[in-house]
Design a binder for these strands. Structure first.
Length: 365
DNA sequence: AACCCGGGGAT
DNA sequence: ATCCCAGGGTT
C-alpha cells in the first residue's frame, strides 16, 4: 500500500501525468489487443512514416492474407505487392518477407526477445525494435519516433534538431529518463497516442494539456517553433547558358553530364555555368567561351530564350543561345558530339532542356 | 551525413 | 504548395 504510493511518486511528474492522461484517452487499435509479436511487428512496419488512419485497413488486410509469419514467409511476391499496393515505401514489405523467412529458418518462427538480435533484421531499426520489445515482451526500451521527438522537444524545450548528434542525445536521454520501466509497453503506447492526438504538429491542444504548467515550450510560448527541424539546405541558385550548335549537315551538338552533379548521366546542350546573369558577366562569359572554343572561326551568337526550373535543392536559371557559322573542321577536340536530330528522342534530357528542344520544335516525343 | 524511398491528409 | 506521418537502408 505504502510501497505502491512510493513507487508512484518516484516516477517523474511527466510520466505519472501521462499515464493518467492515457487512462482516459487511449486509442483503441487492433494490434493493442494481444501481444503477438508477429502482429505487433506487422503493425509497426506498416506504421513507419504512415498515419494510423491510412495504415489501419492495410493492417487488417495483411493479417487476413498472412495470418502467421509462416504464411508470410511462403507468400509470392506478387501477392505481397498486391496487399501493399498504394501504401508506399515498398521495400518495407520486401524486407518483411526476408525477415519472415529468416525467423522461420533460424528461430522456428518466433521473434527473439533480444534487442541485439532484432536490430539485425531487415526493416527493424531502433524504433521498431523498441516497440516490439516493449509491446510484446515488456522490456524497458523507450520508443523514439516523430511523436516522441515532438513531445519531448516541447516539454523539455529542446532547441537542437533531432537529426544533430546533440539533439539526438538530448531526446534519447529524456526518453530514457521518462520511460516507466515497470510498464514500458503502456508508457510507450501512451506517449505515442499523446503525440498523435494532443501534442500535434499543428494546433496542439495546449489549453487542455495535462502538462501545460510544466511544459517548457508552453510556458515560453514557443510550442509552434518546436521541434526544430533540420535546416533544409538553402536552395542553391544556378545559372547556365546553353548553346544550340548545328554542324554543316544539320546535326546538333550534345554532351553527356558527369556523374557528380545534378542530372547525372543525362544529355544536355554544350553549356557554361555562371555565378549570375549580371549583364557584363554574361558578355564576358560568352566572349570567353567563343574565343576559347572557336579560335579559328568565331560563330555568331544569338539569344533565343530564357527559362527556369525548380528542383528539390536547386533553382535553375537557363539561357539559350544559338551559334551560327560553326565549322566542323575545328571541332576535333570538342567534348560534344553531333547527333542527327531525328535521333534526339533516344537521349534522356533534363526537363529544362527537353522543354527548350520542344519549344523550338526539333523533338516531339 | 546525405540521399532515397511514397502515398495521403491537413493547412 | 508545403509539411509531416508509430523509419530504415544505402552510399
Amino acid at each position: 500500500m505504502e510501497s505502491k504510493d512510493d513507487q508512484f511518486s518516484e516516477k517523474p511528474l511527466f510520466t505519472s501525468l501521462l499515464l493518467k492522461w492515457f487512462e482516459q484517452n487511449a486509442r483503441k487499435l487492433p494490434w493493442k489487443e494481444g501481444k503477438d509479436p508477429y502482429q505487433i511487428w506487422v503493425s509497426e512496419i506498416i506504421l513507419q512514416q504512415t498515419r494510423v488512419d491510412q495504415g489501419l485497413p492495410y493492417y487488417h488486410r495483411f493479417i487476413s492474407q498472412f495470418p502467421t509469419i509462416f504464411d508470410l514467409a511462403k507468400a509470392h511476391e506478387d501477392h505481397l505487392m498486391e496487399v501493399w499496393r498504394g501504401l508506399g515505401y515498398y521495400s518495407r514489405v520486401r524486407n518483411m518477407q526476408i525477415t519472415a523467412r529468416l525467423i522461420v529458418e533460424n528461430y522456428n518462427g518466433k521473434f527473439p526477445a533480444d534487442r541485439n538480435e532484432l536490430i539485425k533484421l531487415k526493416g527493424i531499426g531502433p524504433y521498431t525494435a523498441a516497440a516490439m520489445l516493449s509491446f510484446a515482451f515488456n522490456q524497458p526500451f523507450a520508443v523514439v519516433d516523430g511523436n516522441v521527438v515532438r513531445v519531448l522537444s516541447r516539454i523539455s524545450g529542446v532547441k537542437k534538431p533531432y537529426s544533430s548528434p546533440e539533439g539526438r542525445k538530448l531526446i534519447e536521454q529524456k526518453a530514457e529518463q521518462y520511460l516507466d520501466k515497470t510498464n514500458p509497453g503502456i508508457y510507450n503506447q501512451a506517449i505515442l497516442d499523446f503525440g498523435a492526438t494532443w501534442c500535434t504538429p499543428q494546433k496542439p491542444k495546449c489549453s487542455t494539456c495535462f502538462f501545460k504548467e510544466n511544459c517548457d515550450a508552453c510556458k515560453n510560448e514557443i510550442v509552434h517553433l518546436l521541434p526544430v527541424r533540420k535546416q533544409k539546405l538553402a536552395k542553391k541558385t544556378r545559372y547556365f547558358i546553353f548553346f544550340l550548335i548545328y554542324d554543316e549537315s544539320g546535326q546538333l551538338a550534345l554532351q553527356k553530364r558527369s556523374d557528380k552533379d545534378i542530372w547525372r548521366s543525362l544529355y544536355e546542350l554544350p553549356q557554361i555555368e555562371l555565378t549570375d546573369f549580371e549583364e557584363n558577366n554574361v558578355k564576358e562569359a560568352l566572349a570567353g567561351y567563343l574565343k576559347n572554343n572557336f579560335n579559328h572561326f568565331i560563330p555568331t551568337c544569338h539569344f533565343l530564350q530564357q527559362s527556369f526550373q525548380l528542383l528539390t535543392h536547386q533553382k535553375i536559371n537557363a539561357r539559350f543561345y544559338q551559334l551560327n557559322g560553326f565549322q566542323t573542321i575545328q571541332s576535333a577536340e570538342y567534348q560534344f558530339n553531333f547527333v542527327n536530330i531525328k535521333n534526339l528522342c533516344k537521349f534522356a534530357f533534363p526537363k529544362i532542356i527537353e522543354k527548350f528542344l520542344k519549344s523550338i520544335n526539333i523533338i516531339h516525343c
